[in-house]
Design a protein around this nucleic acid. Sequence first.
DNA 1: AAAGCCGATGAAACCGGTTTCTGTAACCGG
DNA 2: CCGGTTACAGAAACCGGTTTCATCGGCTTT
Lengths: 357, 357
Amino acid sequence: MKKTTINDIAEEAGVSKATVSRVLNHEELVDEETRNRVLDIIRKRRYSPSLVARNLSNRASNTIGIIIPEIDNSFYGKILRTIVNITDAEGLIPICFDTGNNPEKDMKSLRILRDQRVGGLIYAPSVEHGGADAAERAKQLLDDMGVPAVLIDRNVPDFQRSGVFFDGFDAGYRATKILIAAGHTDVGIITGSLKLGIARERLRGYLEAHEACGLPVRRTLIFEGDFTSKTAYLLSREMLSLPERPGAVLTCNNDTGLGFLQALAERKLRTPRDIEHIGIDEIDVFDDLRMRYNHVARGRVEMAQKAMKLLTAQIRNPDTRPESVWIAPRFVLDAHLERVAVRRGIIDKKQKGASRL
Amino acid sequence: MKKTTINDIAEEAGVSKATVSRVLNHEELVDEETRNRVLDIIRKRRYSPSLVARNLSNRASNTIGIIIPEIDNSFYGKILRTIVNITDAEGLIPICFDTGNNPEKDMKSLRILRDQRVGGLIYAPSVEHGGADAAERAKQLLDDMGVPAVLIDRNVPDFQRSGVFFDGFDAGYRATKILIAAGHTDVGIITGSLKLGIARERLRGYLEAHEACGLPVRRTLIFEGDFTSKTAYLLSREMLSLPERPGAVLTCNNDTGLGFLQALAERKLRTPRDIEHIGIDEIDVFDDLRMRYNHVARGRVEMAQKAMKLLTAQIRNPDTRPESVWIAPRFVLDAHLERVAVRRGIIDKKQKGASRL
DNA sequence: AAAGCCGATGAAACCGGTTTCTGTAACCGG
DNA sequence: CCGGTTACAGAAACCGGTTTCATCGGCTTT
């Protein structure tokens, strides 16, 4: 059961394959009668040309690669879905990989995409985990590929590539300021692994907010986690059983927030009654459940759209200069915190709002 | 900045491209000295052959297509991630599409995968929505492709393809029986769109459980939704304000469960105190939060693994006969319901257990 | 009527690989 | 010294397309 090829069509129509090709690509160049004869046969045989052969011949590529750490994390899931929908509309074909935050899989995925000769790449690197060496190898591969690439969510400064990032510093800074403005002098934080730039940024925001408010930082309230709910849960337990437990807590991503909430429930504590809390990242279920969840939305859809915009621009014009974009945090807060934040000028009305992105 | 090709290597090494190809694929056929010379140049130039050209030449395909309805739904997200990880290990390259439950996108995706000449396909059809006509066109395309395809999660009987499905009838049947066994004569149900086979199956289980228990079905307690949380929420509100509201409710997928819980919270009702509830599908956050959620797990990872197993078997041996597999429901219940269910022999110890799949 | 042009088509080269077929030189046994 | 292997490598065909270039018949143009 071999696939029909352009030769089969040409033969049956009694023309050369050049003519069939022309019917397919430049129909105006072929006589109407011939064209119809060929088209009839194409329809009859249900012929459809191979994109693989076509791409080879055109030295073009209609595929793009997507490398993300965890497809089933709602943050990346949303990003992936958005990207896939856009590629579709752009006539691009998405090939996607999941690294599980393992830098070796970064390499492996990049190699495959290089061999597959994708025309572009959207990439949320986990190579930072592996240290400078892994990052260097990834950069090397990226350069070898010689195709446009747009980083998303996670920055690797040396890469000198376009990127779309969340402004984690600003998020950490203002979230902390809001908590302080709400009267807390003891704000705890559960971060991700500080090997990751995005985790460091958010922590830096937290630290500088203290400084800006003239408040000393309490080192004992800083817990370095790894962005998983399990670790966050364990750290939160620890934090909540401190002799002087914090009056407010900032968690630095969705899973960390969940771990914290679990520890809270275990201790039969409630927020905001017993402890104030702001999380970074939206958590979709809470939305579905219409549950209040003070958080900083990261604009996932916006990030994905912007990334694709940068990528397609670079694909169309390879000379486009790399450009980095930072997506501003959007604060989704309960009435009390929102009032405080707006009054103190930490956020203005535009930046709040729960519209789900 | 053109990519290095096999010709460049051949030229620089002073050999023919046939020799370079042999170095790459059958190194034993080329003299050690020549081989090393070629290999050195390959390394120096960082050459890596084009899989596209290679596939064309071998009339092979190293890609597989994946079509699912909603990447960012945790059910499909998990499935996709599992599949992507397996393809990776198998040396296959995954191309994935999101249909958003729109049959037109089913068609579009299938056409692209056909043109891309994928070597296989994992497919969760949304064409049932579009009626027999859409299903017929999809089947046609699938046949045209002439490659192995494995349906997942959603069955379209006419397709005569391999498939891995959840035993929704059994889930509905036993879940309902458990609720009845717990003493409820008034079990409500919120289904998905009954245009979908999987929704009908689950409802059928509900109905037959009543019959098996000699209990009349109360038509007013059957609410046809569409598997979205929004609709489920609205229906649940309606259900909860019935003069004689049900003592127990079965919801038929994850989002439906969420919608129900939202309505419950709005009415300040709690489960199981005020109303008993079993949902079909796991909801990951509840797991993260260590929150009790009586549900029927669908074994997402198991489904994906099995699907890939069937697919790779068919790819390796195209004569493999289509085979359909039904994954058994796994009940994750609170102590009370579990005791009831086990005592009545509705589930046995093996089928319970909260191990997260 | 010769020159020039145009529209329609086929032949052939090409994309970047793999593989078959062929040729050559070295090696073997008799 | 000869016929037969064998090891190695190049030429050429092929995969399924696109595109350049050449050909040819018919139609203007002068």
